[in-house]
Simulated assay, not measured.
Amino acid sequence: MAVSYMDFTSPSVQFTYDLKNNPFFQKDSRNYIDALGIQQLNTLGNVSLLNIFLSTGNVVEPHIHQNASELVFCISGAALVSLINPFTKQLLNFQIQPGQVANVPQGWWHYEMATVDNTQLLAIFDAPVPEFIPASDMLRLTPASVFAHTYCLDEAKVKNTLAPITDTVVIGPPSSCHRELDQDYAQIPQQQARSYTQPSFNGQIGNGWSYPAPNGYGGGYGLND
């Protein structure tokens, strides 16, 4: 537990909280995230969590938490947790089902995709305020000319490809995307996945964990200012 300066005799001390009171992001009624941090439960130590609900093919977009490790626990459904090992330069895919976990070390690039409907994941962090840098922000805020120059690409094609990304995605594809979800994409070939068993932008973000800022993942990509 982190060092606590909480006055446990204070009338404002909190020991319980209902996560439904703190929606972090909502894409629709089947794809949303509730959050718990020290802002919601002031007796927390060095821990926080996200309660994630996803339907088939929906993805918590690629991102990093530069100040926290993440333990992903599958409560229901099934998910593919993918991460890049920065030391081996390998993309690792882990299929998890209820009762199984996947661990993402601090600062590693990763994402989670539901492979069946009614998937619920609990993401637990070893920080009271996990920082969050999403791919959608890096792609939309970096000038196309920089990508084109750095990687010897056609600037017009880069700009055209990235133009639809106009805001932070969080859960993709955005609700403004009208093409059908690629169901086959969620079925990673067995040789690519390690499995324990065979198995608009219309989102709203808010209540202390809102992103973008001021009182959420924004403002330096932290949960507080």
Rank of each mutant, 00 (worst) to 15 (best):
L50A: 02
L50S: 06
L50D: 07
L50Q: 05
N51L: 05
N51V: 03
N51S: 07
N51W: 01
N51I: 01
I52N: 05
I52W: 02
I52Y: 03
F53I: 00
F53K: 04
F53Y: 07
F53H: 07
L54W: 05
L54H: 07
L54F: 05
L54R: 06
S55R: 08
S55P: 03
T56D: 08
T56F: 01
T56W: 00
G57S: 06
G57N: 06
G57P: 04
G57T: 07
N58V: 00
N58T: 04
N58L: 02
V59C: 08
V59W: 01
V59N: 05
V59Y: 02
V59A: 04
V60I: 05
V60R: 03
V60L: 05
E61Q: 14
E61Y: 05
E61G: 13
E61L: 11
E61S: 11
E61M: 11
H63E: 07
H63S: 13
H63K: 11
H63V: 14
H63N: 08
H63R: 09
I64F: 06
I64D: 10
I64T: 15
I64A: 10
I64L: 15
H65D: 13
Q66Y: 15
Q66E: 15
N67Q: 11
N67E: 13
N67H: 10
A68T: 09
A68E: 06
A68G: 04
A68N: 09
A68H: 04
A68W: 02
A68Q: 11
S69A: 14
S69D: 10
S69K: 06
E70N: 03
E70Y: 01
E70W: 00
E70R: 00
L71H: 08
L71P: 05
L71S: 11
V72M: 06
V72K: 01
F73Y: 14
F73S: 13
C74D: 12
C74F: 11
C74I: 09
C74Q: 10
I75Y: 05
I75S: 10
I75M: 07
S76R: 02
S76K: 01
S76I: 00
S76W: 00
G77R: 05
G77N: 05
G77I: 00
A78E: 06
A78W: 03
A78K: 02
A79D: 04
A79T: 03
A79Y: 01
A79L: 06
L80V: 07
L80G: 01
V81G: 09
V81R: 00
V81K: 01
V81F: 02
V81M: 06
S82I: 04
S82A: 12
S82H: 03
L83D: 12
I84T: 15
I84D: 12
I84W: 12
N85S: 15
N85H: 15
P86S: 09
P86C: 12
P86D: 12
P86H: 13
F87E: 14
F87D: 14
F87W: 13
